[in-house]
Design a protein around this nucleic acid. Structure first.
Length: 360
DNA sequence: TTTGATGATTTCCT
DNA sequence: AGGAAATCATCAAA
């Protein structure tokens, strides 16, 4: 009606527009259908940090339910405000009209009053939008907390990472490039690879005794691969890490160091683990797998599902950057840090896990 | 439900 | 900025 006309000239408040846009983007405001799901999708995408993770149906619906709740409240409140605003406006207009019998009141004056009322109510509306935005943000942050969404990596990924780790036990510090390749292979992000190596190093160091079992396992595995490939046919000459441009796990980050390959952690079982002989053959398998691995194309759906059961292709991984001194990283400066006590880095007996839970 | 394993985050250090 | 160490939060097997 005539009331509407006055409002149209309101200058678009940038703050209000921002809030509106956000609410629409989050699926709180805007079209009824699809809004919720689009918001949920957005949340999922954001949660995964981009590369897309599997939608957890439960969390998904949980998030959607909460969002719907917010949406409901928002719309109810908004309606209430609008109704109150209209009622109040018409009330005032009627009053003015009544007054116009006793004194002349210009229509412009009425319009002015109406716009004042509108402004007041839109300020309230803005507050509502603001608090709704905050609620959505809180909801999202709760759902987006990565720790709440932790998933174990696939077996395959773990194998790939472990193989690299134990092949470079002397210097398990993959370069950025290597991390990227590992990430690609495992279908995880580079950050996750960094996390994994950080965790692995510290946990290995804290519990070398137990880790040795694992180390033996991987050493044997890699050695077996090596033997198999060597038998398979004329490969590149083993022991020649530089024979190919892109070589696999280079077992000797820097050969010739005092510690030799792998230092004190390599000959774990009298297994006579021979790094040099392995590099060449892993690559033979690797080339066959390379295209398969590349097909995963990154971090995508199903990455947490048991898929791709091939032998971990550890090819083409450039050696560690070598910027770090590889000599016995396990003993390097076990800094007490903030904790202070319990710095028994070598937990050699009593394989009590270093894990201290806060809860009983 | 308990408990060890594990991915992620935080804090501090170099 | 990257790593070590501690810690948190969740998963998953027993």
């Amino acid at each position: 009606m005539s009331i509407r006309g006055a409002q149209d000239e309101e200058p678009p408040d940038p703050q209000l527009m921002r809030l509106d846009n956000m609410l629409i983007a989050e699926g709180v405001a805007g079209p009824e259908k699809g809004g919720g799901s689009s918001a949920a999708t957005a949340a999922t995408a954001a949660a995964s940090g981009g590369p897309g993770q599997p939608d957890n149906a439960i969390e998904h619906s949980d998030y959607r339910a909460k969002l719907a709740q917010i949406r409901q409240i928002y719309h109810t409140e908004l309606e209430k405000y609008e109704q109150a605003c209209n009622e109040f406006t018409t009330h005032v207009v009627n009053l003015l009209r009544e007054q116009s019998r006793t004194r002349p009141i210009a229509p412009k004056e009425i319009e002015r009053m109406v716009s004042i009322i509108r402004r007041k109510f839109s300020a309230i509306e803005m507050q509502l939008k603001q608090s709704t935005c905050e609620a959505v943000m809180i909801l999202r942050s709760r759902f987006l907390d990565a720790r709440r969404k932790r998933r174990n990596f696939t077996k395959n990924s773990t194998v790939v990472l472990n193989e690299y780790f134990y092949s470079h036990l002397a210097n398990p510090y993959p370069s950025e490039e290597t991390k990227e390749q590992l990430a690609k292979q495992c279908g995880i992000s580079v950050g996750q690879v960094s996390n994994w190596f950080g965790n692995k190093r510290i946990r290995y160091k804290k519990n070398i005794g137990k880790a040795q079992e694992e180390a033996n396992l991987y050493a044997a595995k890699i050695a077996a691969q090596g033997a198999q490939a060597t038998n398979a046919g004329p490969q590149t000459s083993p022991g020649d890490p530089n024979s190919q441009g892109a070589t696999n796990y280079n077992m000797v980050p820097r050969s010739g160091s005092g510690l030799g390959s792998g230092g004190m952690y390599m000959n774990l079982n009298g297994d006579n683990f021979q790094p040099e002989s392995i590099g060449a053959n892993v690559q033979s398998q690797a080339s066959a797998l390379r295209h398969v691995v590349n097909q995963t194309g990154g971090y995508n759906d199903g990455m947490y599902e048991p898929h791709m059961q091939q032998t971990p292709s550890s090819e083409a991984l450039s050696p560690t950057d070598g910027s770090r001194d590889e000599k016995d990283w396990t003993t390097s400066n076990f800094n007490p840090g903030a904790g202070g006590e319990n710095n028994d880095a070598t937990h050699l007996d009593g394989d009590e896990p270093p894990n201290k839970r806060s809860k009983v």
